[in-house]
Design a protein around this nucleic acid. Structure first.
Lengths: 331, 331
DNA sequence: CTGAAAGCGCTAACAG
DNA sequence: CTGTTAGCGCTTTCAG
């Protein structure tokens, strides 16, 4: 920058003013500076700028695992809107591990990030959560925090999604249900389970539902489904807490010689792209993943502006997508 | 930092030395400083440090689209090794768009990143590529650049993978083949096509292969396959340039009432997780995706160390994974 | 409208 | 072993 100031015959202060929008520079001076900048193909050092302004144009994105297509979609939505706003996003895979989450939070804050998106904060104890919330860095969570700690949140109406699945399966005549729900105390999955169970009870006196816990991805669904099929408890329909789990079920079913949906109906949650190409195409609860990323970033950006710092909760609608993995009960 | 220096009764310089590893601080002094730091829960400002050291502990990752499971896997490998080395990675989705790539390169360099991983640099013209290569920032590409521009590269042996697919299909008796190859001049896909075509020619005089170009993801494969099936050219086997394309083929086949592999055999490339859960499980060429991310970062880190700045080319092996989407030709 | 000067938080010579 | 002093590249008062 010193170079271009010299080349344009001004001081570095005027150069700075010319390059940024700040008013109060003669039009001709500004043009001279800009030309000099272009000629020397000047690239501003954003670190230096951040050091003085206190803002970094960097957002943190702490997710369980980017290999989960759900998160990939959220990440893309987040990145696109960050891009539009001139921000970069740093990607952090936490595996929901508290150690790793702490590391990232520290690291991000040391970089003066303008905000952080986390899919969950449950791995941290309450004191840490409280400290996080009051650190001054805008934070948005991708599940309903439900706690008295004032984080912003963006999430789908998980409970409603669970209800939708239940009502659908009950309407198809199923009475012996199973629900694969991933790890206990996993925010979103827990809410889906709650909605599902409530709706089943409300809809039918004689329905039974067996709830299994395990991993939250394909492998977990596979393991739980194997267990379920081995014990042959006569369930005719399964609601998987997410599509990855449902894919695991599909795999297990094929291996066990069970046909979906003839032998067992299956409903997932998320509506990831692959639901359309598996066989049978998966009936599932749609949630707006890309839009969640968008929403999270836009909240962060608003918060970072500094005006109003009130947390915001945004809940996105869900919708049953009927495909071919569920059918009327046939016994 | 001033605060903890004061609290420990030393100058800020000694504080700095105590907190970093630099030798030459009395053990007791160091301990005092560290305790003070802990007590005031001090968090170093990494931007300030970067400003003076010139290194940022940030890596850039410019990919087409993180929603592609292949890239998600690479990203995870990259992020894990970056994490182990105390680096952050900023995620950039380029869609292979040159404008967006330029933006990210500028932005990353403005942040003094220690290195950049790009899946391809073909969208940039040669002058830009050359400028990039000589910018001083370590760069590694995820395809073989093949150009005289000295980028480091990490990629699978794509040509060999193509050959493997060809030899396999020919051995199964197929003579009327099709290859879905994505966009023209897409580095990796082009190499796979070359290997495939060469091996077909070498293996059989009377084999024909129809090559189609189009998108490089599920939707593209779907469109190409529809076209192919509509024209019914009697092909008995398809080699898709990647698994996403193959999934598109599967979808199109189901819609057209064609059975895989009875009516048409299918081989993919990548071996993403979903190959195991589609029906039929996809026979494909495995490439080490996670390891590519690892390798890319480790090269970057070595280059960033500053010692030897020679570019490095790492090519990872491939392997045919036989599942159920291909069988002996039956006519 | 422009220049001079202070300083963001930290590291790295160079003395002592 | 520790303190003093520059300065990384930029923004931002405060004067003029």
């Amino acid at each position: 920058m010193r170079d271009i100031a010299e080349a344009a015959g001004v001081t570095i202060a005027t150069a700075s003013r010319s390059l940024n929008g700040s008013y109060g520079v003669h039009r001709l001076t500004r043009e001279r500076v800009q030309q000099a900048a272009a000629r020397l193909n000047y690239r501003p050092n954003r670190l230096a700028r951040s050091l003085v302004t206190g803002r970094s144009q960097i957002l943190g994105l702490i997710l369980s695992d980017i290999r989960n297509p759900f998160f990939a979609e959220v990440a893309r939505g987040a990145e696109d809107t960050a891009y539009a706003a001139g921000c970069d996003v740093v990607l952090c895979n936490s595996d929901l591990d508290s150690e790793r989450q702490r590391h990232y939070i520290d690291s991000l804050m040391g970089k003066n990030v303008d905000g952080i998106i986390m899919n969950s904060v449950r791995a941290l104890d309450e004191a840490e959560q409280r400290r996080l919330a009051s650190s001054g860095v805008p934070i948005v969570l991708l599940n309903s925090s439900a706690k008295k700690i004032p984080f912003s949140t963006v999430c789908a109406d998980n409970e409603r999604g669970g209800r939708l699945a239940a009502e659908y399966l009950i309407a198809l005549g199923h009475r012996h249900l199973a629900h694969l729900s991933g790890p206990r105390h996993h925010g979103n999955l827990t809410q889906r389970a709650r909605g599902f169970l409530q709706a089943v009870r409300e809809a039918s006196k004689d329905a039974t539902v067996r709830v299994l816990h395990g991993g939250h991805s394909l492998a977990g669904g596979y393991v739980m489904a194997r267990k379920l099929f081995r014990e042959r408890p006569g369930v005719t329909a399964i609601f998987a807490g997410n599509d990855a789990l449902a894919f695991g079920v599909l795999k297990a079913a094929r291996e066990c010689g069970l046909r979906v949906p003839q032998d067992v109906s299956l409903v997932g949650f998320d509506n990831v792209e692959f639901t359309t190409i598996v066989d049978p195409p998966l009936t599932t609860i749609h949630q707006a993943k890309y839009e969640m990323g968008e929403a999270a970033v836009s909240i962060l950006l608003r918060l970072a502006k500094g005006k109003d710092r009130n947390p915001e909760d945004r809940v996105l609608g869900v919708e049953l997508i009927e495909r071919e993995s569920a059918m009327k009960v046939n016994r």
